[in-house]
Design a protein around this nucleic acid. Structure first.
Lengths: 197, 197
DNA sequence: CGGATGATGTCAGTTACTGACATCACTCTA
DNA sequence: TAGAGTGATGTCAGTAACTGACATCATCCG
């Protein structure tokens, strides 16, 4: 028999997520999380930098998927199409809608968690900007496109999680395409029409 | 003689700022701040919600100045001009360049402080979006303009603080105008020119 | 003159997080 | 195959952010 059960990190993650969902983030102590996972508090902090980081565990993978897809898009592809590929690749990293919904509910209920989410998005934006620069984009264009792309993702993601659970809704990739089409519409639209909005 | 020295909050603010600048944010304890201000730790937390909030003390005033100026711009003014007025009014709230520089140095050295700054900007963005909606702007337009306006502010502010201290540089309002002009240029530019950047 | 007020002090407690060291199944090597 | 490493975990003590409850006492107001 192994000295330790093998999946400490996964068990900690599941325990934390469940407790945050049940009692709320603030009312959950790290000691309780560790205890439910059959481990100690000290071990929790060996796997996660802090109490918040549990909810952002997949973020490196997420960022990596996005960046790789953008970098790997054909050189002939338009910048916005490369970004679209990145968004879809990132979306594929997200597990299931119900989990995403629960996670989002935990985050919006707590300002500290919103702060953490904001800095994760900022890091994503930086990485995406650099990747677009590597594709030959100029300085303001790369940053603007990165920000716009992430805005598209956020809009699509919010629609996906806000959708009524009972209705069988469109999936995330489809919503990303929709949102992207809206962005194209707004940007392409001539200025007289835009001013009338 | 008064029972308490009158400016507790100001003294705490000055003490905290000085210590953060000298030793860094992490290496400063609230007990030290309170002690330098001639007060107790408990009193610190009566004036500031947490250790970070000291560095964002003016943010409500800042936001108020910006929102008021945008709301008070003549109804005939173009949305972007109303935003420009807001940015200048907000800039007027900023004390001096040397203080701003020191503050920025403290913040960029610490991720927790960057998180806090991000959420302050998010709040600013929400307020600005709502104000623009009140002026009759549509839904995606208001948000986009708010974000673009704040981006302009950030660019101008960074230039202002990064400028060599010895050279007598342009002031913040002038840099805001410059940055705004660049935004107008990028947005107005026809798409063939933009693609070549 | 006396009670209400409000900013501060005091104190005890909780909890996130850290560093140092011990443990012990497993593995690799001589 | 013995014995030295390795690595994930446990144990323990400590620091510091933050909170709640209650005391104090100059000032203000009736």
């Amino acid at each position: 028999m192994a000295r330790w059960e093998p999946d400490s990190r996964r068990r900690l993650h599941e325990a934390a997520f469940a407790l945050y969902a049940e009692r709320g983030f603030d009312s959950t102590t790290v000691a309780e999380i560790a205890s439910r996972a059959g481990l100690t508090e000290r071990t929790f902090f060996r796997h996660f930098a802090d109490k918040r980081e549990v909810l952002f565990a997949g973020s490196e993978t997420f960022q990596q998927a996005m960046v790789s897809a953008v970098a790997g898009a054909p050189g002939s592809a338009a910048p916005l199409d490369a970004v679209a590929a990145g968004l879809e690749a990132a979306a594929a990293q997200i597990p299931g809608r119900e989990l995403a919904r629960q996670r989002q509910a935990i985050i919006v209920a707590n300002p500290e968690l919103q702060e953490r989410e904001l800095i994760k998005f900022a890091s994503l934006s930086d990485a995406l900007t650099n990747t677009l620069r590597d594709r030959g984009l100029g300085d303001p264009a790369a940053r603007l496109l990165a920000e716009a792309g992430l805005a598209v993702f956020r809009v699509a993601f919010d629609r996906w999680t806000d959708a009524d659970a009972d209705a069988d809704e469109r999936d995330l990739p489809a919503l990303i395409q929709d949102s992207l089409a809206e962005l194209r519409g707004i940007v392409t639209e001539d200025s007289r029409t835009a001013a009338a909005r």
